[in-house]
Design a binder for these strands. Sequence first.
DNA 1: TAGTGGTCTAGACCACCGC
DNA 2: CGGTGGTCTAGACCACTAG
Lengths: 270, 270
Amino acid sequence: MASAAAKSSLKKTTPAPPAPRGASLNQTIRNDIEHKIMSGEWPPGFRLPVEHDLMAHYGCSRMTVNKALGALSAQGLIIRRRRAGSVVAAPSADRAVLQIVDFAAEAQRSGKLYRHDMMERRMEEIDAATARRTGLKPGTRVLYAATRHVVDGVIEAYEERIVNLAAVPQARRESFADMPIGTWLLQRVPWSDAEHIIGAINADARLARRLGVERHAACLMLERRTWQNTVFLTEARLYYPGTGHRLVGRFSPTGNAAFGLAGGTENGRS
Amino acid sequence: MASAAAKSSLKKTTPAPPAPRGASLNQTIRNDIEHKIMSGEWPPGFRLPVEHDLMAHYGCSRMTVNKALGALSAQGLIIRRRRAGSVVAAPSADRAVLQIVDFAAEAQRSGKLYRHDMMERRMEEIDAATARRTGLKPGTRVLYAATRHVVDGVIEAYEERIVNLAAVPQARRESFADMPIGTWLLQRVPWSDAEHIIGAINADARLARRLGVERHAACLMLERRTWQNTVFLTEARLYYPGTGHRLVGRFSPTGNAAFGLAGGTENGRS
DNA sequence: TAGTGGTCTAGACCACCGC
DNA sequence: CGGTGGTCTAGACCACTAG
């Protein structure tokens, strides 16, 4: 009998997840199941008890069970299909989730001193290569800015950015003395699509000078383009010294993540 | 009157989001609100109509509205608080989401030929530096493997990996001839925590030889450590040629993401 | 203190699809 | 066919907190 098998799988064969403590019932159900999956007790492909059995086990209504399973499904931890039931999903292909550091906010949080140097700022017409990357017509007028992000006297990154003035006309009048362009844009302009490219390049003479590294030193490059539907908004190219400072992300398969900026030359686990 | 103001904000002042077509009611509500937020019509800080008004507007029960708003809240698009109501969230700090490419799967999908060369494979005891990174005791026995990922004859990445044999004893008997270690582990071992570090380094002689690049060429380095609760499982260091191939991610603020591996030397938007 | 979201109930009808 | 999830209802009580 299916329900007997399902119920038996609900018995606590593992030490028992720590008491939920004030959590709602649907959260408790979620945690229980999450624990069973992450511990390997319910491996990928394992068929979960049906909603009716979970109702009986937790003594609640179907909506409550449904909410818990729906959340797990949204997380990608389980896959639900009519008639086929709910099964534990195969581990997703790994993703690296990386915080793009807002230097100003990060510095403020850790009590450090942030400043940004705007090294160039001008209106210009884009060239063919930029037009290809952004989808704009060659010759479109954009704001070009080159900025250096400095925290406690250390150059953390060098940024080159273009902003589509047709989409963000108010950028023309801004001096960006108080706030880096990225922060300013984030606060004002909603976006719907973004594209990231991460690469490594050897610093040429100009980049080496502006980033304060030796020529040919390996630098991390993060390129981000942002659109509002089909309208191109902005492109940022961030260059980081390859050594000493790195992008870091900590996370779990459930989607929870914590971030930080690795400083120094060691990669200690905090 | 609050409800009048709320209702007026529900009037379609923008072209109207395309007909949902077959979507459930709570999905329709979600889409409508998502559209209003992403278009900028409801800017960050904007207070949404209360659930009761949305009920009236859509002619449905409160649970239906609640489900839609709950999902938006889970996405991080809105913030809900008792008494204070629901407000549009401030744009999150930018995150780069990057697919860690499973070369075998990627190659198969695009009809290319994948192979991996295991260049080294041995049991060894970890040194002090590795012990620090992983949290293992110095001298712990691990599996060490160096692998090259080759797609259509092109070296895509070079991988150095250690696997904690105490946590994954069956790795000792595996030859990994059929399947790269990473894929093998992903299919067998559940994990609860991971840490990523991305950096750039100049290739030393050995890396240059194995990755098929010139000495001092800038290489992208992706380091991933994985734990099952507090038990260290594995560390992988992936090295990519800095030029020609880059990690790419496309995504939207709602969390939807699409990924690919950028090939060639151009960064065209597909 | 009253408005708001958080959660839950005990049903219901339906669409899907494996058997 | 019948088991399963998908969705929805019309209520209810409670917890929190802004005014």
